[in-house]
């Protein structure tokens, strides 16, 4: 009992450590609340302003004879939920990548996954027009895998192996190549407009059936990420330390890589190659909740969702009725953040 008492009393010096779960819980609760509120606001604003009461009634008592209900149910709600989902996907995939590569600059955009997925989308648009959404998603995964494979392949080809900076350089080169190829295909097959829309990033085309298809995959990927979150923390200490602690690093990394591909692939298939969400959010989350991935994963999912919902809202509000590309808005935040991280030396994670 004496021992028990010793560990349950709160010393002032224990506050930093013990406060982290509290902060994380606040982020999860507050973030969820913020997410719901911003989804509500975002849904009520648009070309036709609809008040919150109508938004609420369209959800609880849907009446398909009312245009306002239709707008909300068929156009705005799937779009905003899509934004939240995409933000969560990119943020969690970024968190996992930064953890297992120990690379603070890891992000599905910077490591070629997004460009790869976009490239395969171009191929699917050019050669298999009108393909069902489910196949588009699989093309997107394959593309993310292709991009990641090329980047990690090139990064590890030279002596010395996978250094963080080398990976980012390989990512930049591979992304440039894949984007150029996508554009080539787009011009040659005259699908530029479809693709330009996709590349700029937009959730406006999201439909219920798309969400219904990806939601189970995303949920499985999130649950997988959560159940491996402790292992991510251990791997982030370094490969040799992780092996020493009895971690089966190869197996764990393999599963995590699949989860990353699923999340990044889905993100791109819905919104296009939007970068920087997976870069910014994990850093902010780590700053707030510390280094424990059991908290980082859920918190970054919520904060990522919030960021993209707000960015999408901003994209519609800046210059209505025209929509500013959501990717451009996030890049406005992301580029300075990237420069800040790169200036810091990019040495720590």
């Amino acid at each position: 009992m004496a021992i028990l008492k010793k560990y349950t009393q709160v010393d002032t010096e224990d506050v930093i450590y013990q406060s982290r779960p509290v902060i994380a819980s606040i982020i999860i609760m507050g973030g969820l609340f913020g997410l719901i509120v911003s989804i509500g606001i975002s849904v009520s604003f648009g070309a036709a302003d609809i008040d919150m009461g109508t938004v609420w009634s369209s959800i609880v008592q849907y009446n398909d004879e009312l245009t306002s209900h239709q707008i909300i149910q068929e156009i705005r709600l799937p779009r905003v939920l899509g934004a939240a989902l995409v933000g969560a996907c990119f943020a969690v995939s970024g968190s996992i990548m930064q953890g297992i590569t120990r690379n603070p600059l890891a992000d599905s955009g910077l490591l070629g996954l997004n460009a790869g997925a976009a490239f395969m989308l171009a191929i699917s648009f050019a050669f298999f027009p009108g393909m069902p959404y489910m196949y588009i998603i699989f093309f997107s995964f394959a593309g993310a895998a292709l991009g990641a494979g090329l980047v990690f392949g090139i990064g590890s080809m030279t002596r010395g192996g996978l250094k963080p900076v080398r990976l980012v350089l390989a990512g930049a080169a591979v992304s440039a190549l894949l984007i150029a190829l996508s554009e080539g295909i787009a011009i040659y097959y005259r699908i530029s407009q479809d693709l330009a829309f996709w590349h700029a990033g937009g959730v406006s085309g999201t439909k219920w059936e798309n969400l219904e298809m990806v939601a189970p995959l995303v949920i499985v990927a999130f649950l997988g990420a959560m159940s491996l979150s402790k292992s991510i923390t251990i791997i982030s200490l370094g490969e040799e330390i992780a092996i020493g602690l009895g971690q089966r690093t190869k197996k764990i990394k393999f599963f995590l890589a699949i989860i990353v591909l699923i999340l990044a692939g889905i993100g791109v298939s819905i919104v296009g190659a939007v970068g920087f969400v997976g870069l910014i959010i994990p850093h902010i989350t780590r700053f707030l909740v510390g280094h424990d991935y059991r908290w980082i994963i859920p918190c970054s999912a919520i904060l990522g969702g919030l960021l993209v919902v707000l960015a999408d809202f901003g994209a519609r509000m800046i210059n209505p009725p025209l929509e500013t590309p959501i990717g451009a808005l996030i890049a406005l935040l992301g580029v300075p953040f990237f420069l800040y991280l790169a200036r810091k030396g990019g040495e720590e994670i």
Partner: peptide, 11 residues
Amino acid sequence: SEVPSGLTIFE
């Protein structure tokens, strides 16, 4: 061994 940032000694 490089230390990830933001970890306390206890952690």
